[in-house]
């Protein structure tokens, strides 16, 4: 049991946790800035990004695709701004215009190009394949101390860990300006915080988290984790720091519980096969949010 768990379940759980936390952390600020749907937009445009990267390089390898996805995310953010400003369109609709068009373009490119022999399809982009990120060289818990086996950890795990650390570092380092500009943009401006630049940096960091998480676990977790844990935490506290910590905790709980329920739940119910872990993690985070909306002490705002 131990060896099987370390080889088959531990890496996906860890990757899921890291992805969840990396998205939930910036999600707090996006939520408070009423930009919650940026995560949605970014995760839709990742598809055209990786398809274009694939068409340009002709291979399915991680770095070009990550770059393509990140590029697409930046293009999308810029286009949303342009459409919003130039066309004087409200932000929600501008977002809808850009991400649906780019996603449609991505699907069309994918269908038109010969990708039948490579593992690149819409389903994979949407809900990833968390279950396949296994660590074959592990033979038990002691493998965690074995450098030779550690060298064969799924590369997604290392990447996700680095990105999660970068995201956390960004938020810790820029905590005060981020908090001030989130709550009172005008005041932040008067005390000399580069508000616009900071907002852009937040979006870029979110995009980075989304792209890395997408590579490991698919878009659906990304959107859910950007919104559900921060939203649930928001209904529990008025303090930003507390909210961020709670959201990270809830993200971890969603990832672990979701993975376990997806992997072992059906077995307990007598079925043979696991269900989608990504979908289950999103579902669990939704149930947590539902609970917070029903019972959260701060669900109605300051008064109650």
């Amino acid at each position: 049991m131990g060896s099987e768990f370390v080889a088959l379940s531990l890496p996906p759980i860890l990757i899921g946790c890291l992805a969840a936390v990396a998205c939930a952390l910036p999600g707090n600020f996006l939520l408070l800035r009423r930009q919650a749907l940026i995560g949605d937009a970014i995760s839709h445009v990742v598809l055209p990004g990786i398809v274009v990267a694939f068409l340009l390089t002709g291979m399915v390898s991680t770095w070009p695709m990550m770059l393509g996805a990140a590029g697409a995310a930046l293009v999308a953010v810029a286009l949303i701004q342009i459409v919003q400003r130039v066309g004087r369109i409200e932000p929600g609709a501008a977002m809808g215009v850009v991400f649906t068009t780019m996603f449609a373009g991505g699907v069309l490119l994918l269908e038109q190009s010969d990708t039948s022999n490579v593992h690149l399809d819409v389903q994979h982009a949407l809900y990833g394949n968390l279950e396949s990120l296994i660590w074959l060289d592990a033979t038990g818990w002691h493998s965690l101390l074995d450098p030779e086996a550690l060298a064969w950890l799924p590369p997604e795990l290392t990447r996700m860990a680095v990105v999660a650390a970068l995201v956390a570092l960004f938020i810790a380092a820029l905590w005060r300006p981020l908090a001030i500009s989130t709550f009172d943009e005008g005041f932040a401006r008067t005390i000399g915080i580069p508000v616009t630049l900071l907002g852009l940096a937040l979006v870029v960091v979110s995009a980075m988290a989304a792209v890395a998480a997408f590579d490991a676990v698919g878009s659906i977790i990304v959107i859910a984790m950007f919104i559900c844990p921060p939203a649930a935490a928001r209904l529990m506290t008025d303090r930003l720091a507390t909210q961020v910590w709670i959201s990270a905790g809830l993200a971890l709980v969603s990832a672990v519980l979701g993975y376990v329920l997806a992997g072992y739940g059906p077995l307990w119910l007598g079925a043979d096969d696991a269900v989608s872990a990504a979908g289950m993690i999103a579902t669990v985070s939704g149930l947590i949010l539902g609970g917070a909306a029903l019972f959260g002490p701060k669900r109605r705002g300051q008064s109650g």
Partner: peptide
Amino acid sequence: TRLGEDAAIGAVLSVFFGFGIV
């Protein structure tokens, strides 16, 4: 709740979709 409509939209679309995938 005090959540904005954008958060509500994002939560519903991701959770319902995730459950659908399950």
